[in-house]
Design a protein around this nucleic acid. Structure first.
Lengths: 128, 128
DNA sequence: ATACAATATGCGAATACAAGAATATGCTAC
DNA sequence: GTAGCATATTCTTGTATTCGCATATTGTAT
């Protein structure tokens, strides 16, 4: 589903969201993994909790992500309307070393069962 | 021609360039009309000279535009490497009312021969 | 109730950005 | 040389961003 009115105002807001390294890395993981919580992003990106929390709130206020609580975790997911746009953007960035490494780090941590996502017993929670 | 290495660093820089209404409107006219000078942008967008000059220098430093002098005018054009990317971006924004109006204003001013582009006698100058 | 985990927020500091006014530069024409 | 035009730059002001630290909030487990 595409953004209905991608005008100047909405556009600048979305571009601004993508104009920060931390936000791109966060968005990228959300985009690839469908859902991410702060503590997992903390482990993967090695940012402080404050930093990640704030950027996620920024992204939520900008209308790029949704959030929902599962137990003590807040999971953030990409809004349907921006999936198409994000797809374009991340195809441009598909070769970036940092973003590739982030995905590898995710996989390693998941294999080692160190992610919060592993602690969710009922897998239906995670299923989109 | 595509950007060879559209990585995180280059990406955030380009996104930042697009995250400002004034810069988008300027870039859009450059994109559509191939070349624009400050005084023409001043007439069309009704921004101050300082504002336009600064944003153009910003865009040049960010590697999005080229510049060349013709007589007393400095003409700015899109860099080949970002044409593909700009094409995507402006297709998202193709329905925007402000951007459409800017093009109409350009046409009106050009018909009335009020643009600097009209004052260039030798049309070969403008031809890309 | 105490302790802990995940997340959010108030505060303060450093930095970056955007913009106008005035001025400077450089080029053209007379 | 003087005047005028197009553009760039300096100075300054106000505003926005980003971030860490410490603290608050909410929920869970014991």
């Amino acid at each position: 589903m595409k953004l209905k009115n991608f005008n100047l105002t909405v556009g600048t807001q979305i571009f601004k969201a993508f104009s920060e390294e931390a936000r791109i890395r966060i968005l990228h993981l959300i985009y690839k993994k469908k859902e991410m919580c702060i503590s997992d992003l903390e482990l993967i990106l090695e940012y402080t909790q404050t930093k990640i929390s704030r950027h996620l709130i920024y992204l939520k206020n900008s209308g790029l992500v949704n959030s929902r609580k599962i137990d003590q975790w807040t999971f953030y997911s990409l809004k349907e309307e921006v999936e198409d746009f994000s797809n374009s953007m991340f195809s441009y960035l598909s070769k970036d070393a940092t973003l590739q490494k982030d995905l590898e780090t995710y996989n390693t941590l998941q294999s080692n069962r160190e992610l919060a996502a592993n602690k969710i017993v009922n897998k239906q929670y995670i299923a989109k």
